[in-house]
Design a binder for these strands. Structure first.
Lengths: 192, 192
DNA sequence: CGTTTGCTTGAATTCTGTCAAAGCAGGTGG
DNA sequence: CCACCTGCTTTGACAGAATTCAAGCAAACG
């Protein structure tokens, strides 16, 4: 039930004690999500961080009738509207289940409690934030430095497995182009 | 000498003790930077985080003969090639002093030591990473969702003081357009 | 002064988005 | 088994956005 998420914690902070891990497990809540359901809708305050036990999720903005994907999260990764979670303000994007999914939730309040009771979790929180920063930094660099075609190539190389299960039009906005344009990029790429 | 940087720490983690702050001060090193000099060049491993006591710095990529600005840091803020600092790998961007500047350096090794000796600094590290994440997240959203003109407007509103001292062609790449195009955007904006 | 540095302008070109239509599955019901 | 949806991708024609290259201009500086 919690094996994967516990392993995730142990990997980031190897020196966590059994007592600490047990306190952590007491805070976990399992949540099931149907395909098409929302983990979070824009305007809501995000009150949990969620580990994906099973399934595939998409994070996206809905702006002026259009959807702009900002990330995809699959089994074995953490997700959240982390800015909303940290600031306690309404979030600006949606998190949607692209397949049936099982999540392990940890609430904001429980997290603060863990921070207070066991300093080791401060270290976990720090490393999570650092990891998220690094990922976002790389994404940011790609948006500024690479062409759409290069971003698509990168995506194929790095996220092949996710790519299989996501419709192209969702990838298009992630790369920063329209679905039509991505289609043409693909055509051009196959043309050699 | 260290008043501003100490205040920065106190603000993020109010419960830091005098003993902890004193240990921190022992790790600080002042560094002076001439206008045009580099705090860091791409390819180097970033071994410090630096608080800006005085002056203005620019972070940028140099790609294929072009420079792409990714941020500006002025008095009262922290800067670093944080990804390189965290991963201990060579960094990919440059940090240049746009004016004469005075920095307060804290080394990676000292920081790890502080983390180990005083758990409160874990909390500081966490909050720093969280803050950086939030800033980067907002920047990312702007790049995906807003038009160049809207990004320029935002920049005027949020960073007016920095803007005064930075040549326009450096702002252009930050916004994601060529200098010529930014010039035209400004013309169009003044045209009403 | 003359040089440098940065900003503006113009014209041609390339890139990307829009809109509309057609193609292509996979799934469902008859 | 076929006909028909439905959701997604591809294509084409066109318009708009942004870059490139080249030239001119103005302020700042030695």
């Amino acid at each position: 039930m919690f094996e994967d998420v516990i392993a995730y914690y142990k990997k980031l902070v190897p020196h966590l004690t059994d007592k600490e891990l047990s306190a952590l497990q007491d805070c976990f809540r399992i949540r099931q999500l149907q395909k098409g359901a929302f983990l979070l809708k824009e305007g809501q305050v995000c009150r949990h961080v969620s580990f994906v036990n099973r399934g595939l999720l998409r994070l996206y903005y809905a702006i002026e009738g259009k959807e702009i994907s900002i990330g995809f999260v699959s089994k074995g990764d953490y997700t959240s509207e982390y800015e909303s979670f940290l600031t306690r303000k309404p979030g600006s994007h949606n998190i949607e289940a692209l397949t049936n999914a099982e999540l392990v939730d940890l609430s904001f309040d429980d997290m603060q409690l863990l921070y207070k009771s066991y300093p080791s979790f401060q270290e976990f929180g720090r490393k999570i934030a650092e990891t998220l920063f690094i990922m976002l930094n790389q994404r940011n660099t790609a948006l500024l430095v690479l062409s759409p075609e290069e971003r698509y190539r990168n995506m194929i190389i790095n996220n092949d497995s996710i790519l299989q299960n996501v419709p192209q039009y969702m990838l298009a906005s992630y790369i920063g182009v329209t679905p039509e344009h991505l289609s043409r990029i693909r055509k051009k790429m196959s043309g050699h």
